[in-house]
Design a protein around this nucleic acid. Structure first.
Length: 480
DNA sequence: AAAAAAG
């Protein structure tokens, strides 16, 4: 089965081929023909599944049919975050190179001027976050009566963010007679109701939730004392064959501090979170995508939907509070058939969160020791890490492993530093390890982890989530 | 408890 079998135009097929895709994903196979026929659609899927192209491709052909310059926008795509909206816009540009379609990206955090200008010229596609769209609508800058095609993307996240009333209001401003596509990773009752209300006899397309069934992602939990988190993370970053990594933190302040700390330790990292100016957010993301840095420290603004090629690792510096977020975070790796690795640092306080995650995914996540010995649950005597990593024994009252372990068992032993036969096969960029910031002169060709490590205690700010009195065994590393 | 989205 190829893209040509789906009924797309030749121009579009050329663009798809130029983008390097030859075979449609399951959701694309199922969705594209029915969207082209003008049917409503409910797609249960996340972005890693090729969901975006599943609506962008047929939309381009539908809009390309009636090629009069639109005075009113003819279609609207709603996205929960600005980054996602920008990403969809990029997709339109990539696949629409042979079509003369115009679009406007309506997101907050940037000047309205250009957006208004684009609207005045007339556009075929609006790609918007709800806030800015409503704002512009309120100012009388947009007429939505010509929007006969609506896409509601990431509906469950819209729900999380409290956008459903906005979505409902926006829907009432669109013509009744229209085609509506709704995508969501999950189908909570509210979303179901929304679909019943605004969709007409939709085709339902469902693909497996990536993180719950995606065996491409090797997942590990690393028990660590709260005060040792940064150290453990650095050890992991050095021990792993890192291509690019996203490190998630629960708080924006943690994102900032951790990024600074990593940079001081010589890692090529940058950060993204919602307190940054929008242009900076996009710029940092771009630097990461282009490979100027290979580590991105992020808040949950980057947890969902972002599609960045070749992310080899996800680290949860903080265990996410909400189990859904875990699924989304680790879904940034192991995309499009690639393999990925996800490590979650877990302090004794986080034990409950991990239990929630395991309940949600129905998978037991393997515990391993932090490579540098900065590991271990407080108070518990830890066996030497080699053995501990090898020992497959369930810990902390876990239930015995289940049948699905069989397929994992084929993999090489899982330690924090997997001895990977495929290491040499890794193509493209050479793994970028800890390296000095560009502006500084390089002292040495070879990284010297041991030496760096000795300097690090000074790098560590007072945070580390440790506010109480220091146990004696830690005092050496805190300023004295 | 946090983050996100309109300023």
């Amino acid at each position: 089965m190829s893209f040509a079998d789906l009924g797309l135009s030749d121009e579009l097929l050329r663009a798809v081929e130029a983008a390097g895709y030859s075979e449609p994903t399951p959701i694309q196979r199922q969705a594209i023909p029915s969207v082209l026929m003008g049917k409503d659609l409910i797609g249960i899927a996340q972005t890693g599944t090729g969901k975006t192209a599943a609506f962008v491709l047929p939309m381009i052909d539908i809009l390309g049919e009636g090629r009069t310059r639109a005075l009113m926008p003819r279609s609207l795509i709603l996205e929960p975050t600005r980054e996602l909206a920008a990403q969809v816009a990029e997709n339109f540009e990539k696949y629409g190179v042979h079509h003369k379609l115009s679009m406007a990206l309506l997101i907050g955090g940037v000047q309205m001027g250009d957006q208004v200008k684009a609207l005045e010229k007339g556009v075929d596609v609006l790609i918007a976050t709800p806030g800015r769209l409503m704002d512009l609508f309120g100012r009388g800058k947009i007429l939505l009566t010509g929007c006969s095609l609506l896409v509601i993307d990431e509906a469950d996240r819209m729900l999380d963010m409290g956008f459903i009333p906005d979505i409902e209001e926006i829907c009432t401003k669109l013509p009744k007679n229209r085609q509506t596509l709704l995508f969501s990773a999950t189908m909570p009752p509210v979303i179901k109701k929304l679909a019943d209300k605004f969709l007409n006899d939709p085709k339902r397309v469902e693909v497996a939730r990536p993180a719950t069934t995606n065996t491409n992602i090797r997942q590990f939990v690393v028990p660590v004392a709260a005060a040792k988190k940064r150290e453990a993370l650095r050890e992991l970053l050095r021990a792993e064959d890192l291509h690019t990594a996203i490190i998630f933190c629960n708080r924006k302040t943690t994102v900032r501090e951790l990024n600074k700390s990593l940079q001081r330790s010589g890692f090529a990292s940058s950060e993204i979170h919602g307190d940054m100016e929008q242009p900076a957010r996009l710029a940092e993301l771009d630097r990461f995508k282009k490979g100027d840095v290979n580590i991105l420290v992020a808040s949950d603004v980057a947890a969902r939907g972002l599609d960045i090629k070749g992310v080899s690792h996800v680290f949860n510096f903080d265990a996410p509070w909400h189990p859904d977020d875990y699924v989304h975070r680790i879904g940034r790796t192991g995309r499009a058939g690639a393999t990925g690795t996800a490590y979650t640092l877990v302090t004794p306080d986080d034990a409950e969160n991990i239990a929630e995650i395991e309940k949600l995914t129905g998978q037991k996540i393997e515990r391993i020791a932090a490579p540098g010995g900065g590991s271990a649950d407080a108070g518990e005597e830890a066996p030497p890490r080699r053995e501990r990593a090898r020992a497959e024994k369930p810990r902390r009252g876990e239930k015995p492993e289940r049948a699905e372990q069989a397929d994992k068992a084929e993999r090489p032993e899982r330690t924090a530093k997997p001895e990977r036969a495929e290491r040499d096969e890794r193509p493209q960029r050479e793994p970028r390890e800890a390296r000095p910031p560009r502006s500084e002169p390089r002292q040495e060709r070879q990284p010297r982890p041991e030496r760096q490590r000795r300097h690090e205690p000074a790098d560590d700010g007072p945070d580390d989530g440790w506010n109480g009195p220091m146990p004696d065994f830690l005092n050496f590393s805190i300023g004295g």
